[in-house]
Amino acid sequence: MSARLSAAFAKGRPALVTFVTGGDPTPDATPAILDALVAGGADVIELGMPFTDPMADGPAIQAANLRALAAGTKTATIFAIAKAFRARHPDVPLVLMGYANPMIARGPEWFAAQCQDAGVDGIICVDIPSEEDSEIGPALRAAGVDFIRLATPTTDTARLPAVLNGSSGFLYYVSVAGVTGKQQAAVDSIKDAMDRIKSATDIPVVVGFGVRTPDQAAAFAAHADGVVVGSALVDLVATHGADAAEPVRALTAALADAVHGAKATA
């Protein structure tokens, strides 16, 4: 597991994981937004790779994907943004999140090598379940890039080991059966799921989907190793465009306070 990711989850308190779409609203605006996430206190940065057909995303992130593509964001742009981020922030873990087709378009080895070269710590791929691991998993592992899998409310106890096998970095627990956006899971269901998952693995487990406010983030963080916030930040980018960095920093700071202060249940 990447040393940067291990360190991010070894601070004795839950981690804040933040998501924005790369190239939204433009490739030029993204670096300042990423810096704002770091300045606000995010522990892990997820950089979304835009895709024409974001099937697992709700309206906010769908629109962000299309804005980024319309602004000319290419795969090369994403790696340039990642590489420059790594130069500015040598210790902050950076994870790419996206869909399979752009990741395999030039072959998984090419993609894994680019990740390695740009200092990307891990990959989250929405549409490569463990059954299709061979599509990209071996290439990522050979390049020392973590393959971060997703577990969901429909991942039952029998299936969980298959999902965990080959996962590294952290496990992303999707709190609701649904797409990214506003739907919110009950805290009780999170607690139950975390108990189940934590008893099956030692890798950190973060909870995401539907977390928008510091209060919600704190409530989830009390049961997890980290909380992911995406759509709420992407909404700020949609509203403020090229001037989004400051509002993004302010929301991130409020979220970080809430998450870092949440008492983790052992």
């Binding site: 099937m55 697992a56 399979a100 929405v126 549409d127 490569i128 379940p129 059954e131 299709e132 599509e135 899998r149 997703l150 577990a151 969901t152 409310p153 429909t154 991942t155 039952d156 299936r159 999902v163 999707v174 059966a177 649904g178």
Partner: peptide, 18 residues
């Protein structure tokens, strides 16, 4: 596993997999 040669398969979100 649902493959026709290199084609086919089950490239879906984990939620749908079960």
């Amino acid at each position: 596993n649902g493959h026709f040669g290199q084609f086919g398969g089950r490239y879906v979100a984990e939620t749908l997999m079960p």
